[in-house]
Design a protein around this nucleic acid. Structure first.
Length: 193
DNA sequence: CAAGAGATCATCT
DNA sequence: GATGATCTCTTGA
Protein backbone atom coordinates (compact mmCIF):
# COMPACT_ATOMS: atom_id res chain seq x y z
CA UNK A 1 0.00 0.00 0.00
CA UNK A 2 1.09 3.53 -0.79
CA UNK A 3 2.29 5.53 2.20
CA UNK A 4 -0.24 8.29 3.07
CA UNK A 5 0.62 11.88 3.84
CA UNK A 6 0.15 11.21 7.55
CA UNK A 7 3.23 8.99 7.45
CA UNK A 8 5.41 11.95 6.48
CA UNK A 9 3.86 14.20 9.09
CA UNK A 10 5.55 12.33 11.94
CA UNK A 11 8.80 13.46 13.55
CA UNK A 12 11.66 13.38 11.05
CA UNK A 13 13.76 10.90 13.02
CA UNK A 14 10.80 8.51 13.20
CA UNK A 15 10.16 8.86 9.49
CA UNK A 16 13.84 8.27 8.65
CA UNK A 17 13.90 5.10 10.73
CA UNK A 18 10.56 3.77 9.51
CA UNK A 19 11.49 4.37 5.88
CA UNK A 20 13.98 1.51 6.05
CA UNK A 21 12.42 -1.52 4.40
CA UNK A 22 9.86 0.57 2.52
CA UNK A 23 9.75 0.53 -1.27
CA UNK A 24 10.61 3.45 -3.50
CA UNK A 25 8.53 3.37 -6.68
CA UNK A 26 9.24 5.51 -9.73
CA UNK A 27 6.88 5.39 -12.69
CA UNK A 28 8.44 6.67 -15.88
CA UNK A 29 7.75 6.43 -19.55
CA UNK A 30 10.81 4.21 -19.96
CA UNK A 31 9.49 1.83 -17.32
CA UNK A 32 8.93 1.43 -13.61
CA UNK A 33 11.79 1.10 -11.17
CA UNK A 34 11.46 -0.13 -7.60
CA UNK A 35 13.95 -0.40 -4.76
CA UNK A 36 13.92 -1.28 -1.09
CA UNK A 37 15.24 1.53 1.09
CA UNK A 38 18.30 0.52 3.10
CA UNK A 39 19.84 3.87 4.09
CA UNK A 40 18.41 7.28 5.07
CA UNK A 41 19.46 10.49 6.81
CA UNK A 42 17.37 12.98 8.77
CA UNK A 43 17.75 16.75 8.35
CA UNK A 44 15.84 18.36 11.12
CA UNK A 45 14.71 21.94 11.29
CA UNK A 46 16.22 25.44 11.28
CA UNK A 47 18.69 24.71 14.09
CA UNK A 48 20.37 21.78 12.35
CA UNK A 49 23.43 23.33 10.68
CA UNK A 50 23.66 20.39 8.29
CA UNK A 51 20.13 21.10 7.04
CA UNK A 52 19.96 23.43 4.06
CA UNK A 53 17.04 25.22 5.67
CA UNK A 54 19.25 26.41 8.54
CA UNK A 55 20.40 29.12 6.12
CA UNK A 56 16.88 30.46 5.95
CA UNK A 57 13.86 30.32 3.73
CA UNK A 58 15.09 30.71 0.14
CA UNK A 59 13.96 29.67 -3.30
CA UNK A 60 15.85 26.41 -2.97
CA UNK A 61 14.66 25.48 0.52
CA UNK A 62 11.09 26.62 -0.01
CA UNK A 63 9.80 23.07 -0.48
CA UNK A 64 11.14 22.02 2.92
CA UNK A 65 9.06 24.75 4.54
CA UNK A 66 5.95 23.41 2.85
CA UNK A 67 3.68 20.56 3.94
CA UNK A 68 4.89 16.98 4.41
CA UNK A 69 4.81 14.37 1.69
CA UNK A 70 6.49 16.29 -1.10
CA UNK A 71 9.84 15.73 -2.81
CA UNK A 72 12.80 18.04 -2.24
CA UNK A 73 15.28 17.38 -5.05
CA UNK A 74 18.40 19.50 -5.38
CA UNK A 75 21.65 19.51 -7.32
CA UNK A 76 24.85 18.85 -5.40
CA UNK A 77 28.43 19.47 -6.54
CA UNK A 78 27.16 20.73 -9.85
CA UNK A 79 26.37 17.26 -11.16
CA UNK A 80 24.28 14.98 -8.98
CA UNK A 81 20.70 15.16 -7.79
CA UNK A 82 19.64 14.12 -4.29
CA UNK A 83 16.15 12.97 -3.27
CA UNK A 84 14.59 14.06 0.01
CA UNK A 85 11.11 13.56 1.41
CA UNK A 86 9.66 16.55 3.25
CA UNK A 87 8.41 15.76 6.77
CA UNK A 88 6.58 17.29 9.74
CA UNK A 89 4.40 20.41 9.74
CA UNK A 90 4.12 23.22 7.28
CA UNK A 91 6.58 26.05 8.12
CA UNK A 92 8.88 23.61 9.95
CA UNK A 93 11.69 22.79 7.52
CA UNK A 94 12.75 19.14 7.71
CA UNK A 95 13.29 16.24 5.35
CA UNK A 96 14.74 12.76 4.99
CA UNK A 97 17.48 12.09 2.45
CA UNK A 98 17.21 8.72 0.71
CA UNK A 99 20.83 7.54 0.51
CA UNK A 100 20.57 4.00 -0.85
CA UNK A 101 18.10 1.38 -2.05
CA UNK A 102 18.34 -2.28 -2.98
CA UNK A 103 17.36 -2.59 -6.67
CA UNK A 104 14.34 -4.86 -7.20
CA UNK A 105 12.36 -3.99 -10.34
CA UNK A 106 13.50 -2.37 -13.56
CA UNK A 107 17.07 -3.48 -13.00
CA UNK A 108 17.94 -3.53 -16.70
CA UNK A 109 16.70 0.04 -16.99
CA UNK A 110 18.82 1.05 -14.01
CA UNK A 111 21.87 -0.61 -15.53
CA UNK A 112 21.36 1.29 -18.76
CA UNK A 113 20.91 4.62 -16.99
CA UNK A 114 23.89 4.06 -14.72
CA UNK A 115 26.03 2.52 -17.45
CA UNK A 116 27.20 -0.36 -15.34
CA UNK A 117 26.24 -3.99 -14.83
CA UNK A 118 27.27 -4.09 -11.21
CA UNK A 119 24.14 -4.56 -9.14
CA UNK A 120 25.89 -3.14 -6.11
CA UNK A 121 26.74 0.07 -7.91
CA UNK A 122 23.26 0.94 -9.17
CA UNK A 123 21.70 2.76 -6.24
CA UNK A 124 24.23 2.68 -3.36
CA UNK A 125 24.40 6.44 -2.87
CA UNK A 126 22.10 9.47 -3.10
CA UNK A 127 23.41 10.60 -6.50
CA UNK A 128 23.50 7.07 -7.88
CA UNK A 129 19.92 6.21 -6.99
CA UNK A 130 18.63 9.41 -8.53
CA UNK A 131 20.40 8.47 -11.75
CA UNK A 132 19.08 4.89 -11.65
CA UNK A 133 15.52 6.07 -10.96
CA UNK A 134 15.60 9.06 -13.34
CA UNK A 135 14.97 11.50 -10.51
CA UNK A 136 16.04 15.07 -11.16
CA UNK A 137 15.05 18.60 -10.23
CA UNK A 138 11.97 18.45 -12.44
CA UNK A 139 10.50 16.38 -9.61
CA UNK A 140 11.28 19.02 -6.99
CA UNK A 141 8.07 19.89 -5.20
CA UNK A 142 6.30 16.81 -6.56
CA UNK A 143 3.59 15.16 -4.50
CA UNK A 144 4.66 11.81 -3.03
CA UNK A 145 1.01 10.85 -2.70
CA UNK A 146 0.64 11.08 -6.47
CA UNK A 147 1.65 8.37 -8.93
CA UNK A 148 4.94 9.46 -10.46
CA UNK A 149 7.13 8.94 -7.42
CA UNK A 150 5.89 7.38 -4.20
CA UNK A 151 6.59 4.89 -1.42
CA UNK A 152 4.97 1.61 -0.56
CA UNK A 153 4.76 -0.54 2.53
CA UNK A 154 4.85 -4.16 1.43
CA UNK A 155 4.71 -5.48 4.96
CA UNK A 156 8.26 -6.77 5.10
CA UNK A 157 9.86 -5.71 8.37
CA UNK A 158 13.51 -4.75 8.71
CA UNK A 159 15.67 -7.09 10.75
CA UNK A 160 17.75 -4.55 12.63
CA UNK A 161 18.56 -0.84 12.33
CA UNK A 162 21.95 0.76 12.94
CA UNK A 163 22.65 4.50 13.30
CA UNK A 164 25.81 6.51 12.56
CA UNK A 165 26.64 10.19 12.10
CA UNK A 166 25.63 11.65 8.74
CA UNK A 167 27.94 11.59 5.73
CA UNK A 168 29.64 14.64 4.23
CA UNK A 169 28.56 17.24 6.79
CA UNK A 170 31.86 18.01 8.52
CA UNK A 171 31.09 21.70 8.20
CA UNK A 172 28.08 21.41 10.52
CA UNK A 173 29.85 21.92 13.84
CA UNK A 174 28.27 20.04 16.74
CA UNK A 175 25.48 18.83 14.46
CA UNK A 176 27.82 16.65 12.49
CA UNK A 177 27.98 14.23 15.43
CA UNK A 178 24.25 13.55 15.60
CA UNK A 179 23.51 9.87 14.90
CA UNK A 180 20.90 10.69 12.32
CA UNK A 181 21.93 8.26 9.58
CA UNK A 182 19.89 5.06 9.57
CA UNK A 183 20.98 1.77 7.99
CA UNK A 184 19.53 -1.70 7.56
CA UNK A 185 22.10 -3.78 9.39
CA UNK A 186 23.96 -6.17 7.13
CA UNK A 187 22.63 -4.74 3.86
CA UNK A 188 25.06 -5.07 0.97
CA UNK A 189 23.50 -2.11 -0.81
CA UNK A 190 24.43 0.78 1.48
CA UNK A 191 26.64 3.66 0.30
CA UNK A 192 29.44 3.09 2.81
CA UNK A 193 30.01 1.36 6.18
C1' DC B 1 42.23 -1.89 -1.44
C1' DA B 2 42.99 3.09 0.00
C1' DA B 3 43.67 7.67 -0.87
C1' DG B 4 43.44 11.78 -3.68
C1' DA B 5 42.13 14.67 -7.41
C1' DG B 6 38.98 16.54 -10.61
C1' DA B 7 34.51 17.29 -12.60
C1' DT B 8 30.94 21.16 -12.75
C1' DC B 9 27.19 24.64 -11.60
C1' DA B 10 23.13 26.44 -8.81
C1' DT B 11 22.99 28.93 -4.85
C1' DC B 12 24.23 32.28 -1.65
C1' DT B 13 27.76 36.21 -0.17
C1' DG C 1 33.71 34.65 -5.80
C1' DA C 2 33.28 30.34 -2.82
C1' DT C 3 31.29 26.17 -1.87
C1' DG C 4 28.92 21.85 -1.51
C1' DA C 5 23.84 16.12 2.09
C1' DT C 6 28.85 13.14 -4.51
C1' DC C 7 30.93 10.05 -7.79
C1' DT C 8 34.43 8.22 -10.80
C1' DC C 9 38.83 7.56 -12.15
C1' DT C 10 43.75 7.23 -11.36
C1' DT C 11 47.68 6.11 -8.71
C1' DG C 12 50.42 3.26 -5.86
C1' DA C 13 51.17 -0.39 -2.53
Amino acid sequence: MKLPRSFYQQSTLDVARQLLGKYLVREHQEGTTVGRIVETEAYVGPEDKACHASKGRTARTEVMFGPAGYAYVYLIYGMYDCLNLVTESEDYPAAVLIRAVEPLEGIDLMKARRRTDRLHNLASGPGKLCQAFAIDRKLNGGDLCDKVLYLEDRGEPVSKVVTTPRIGVDYAGPWKRKPWRFLVQGSEFISKP
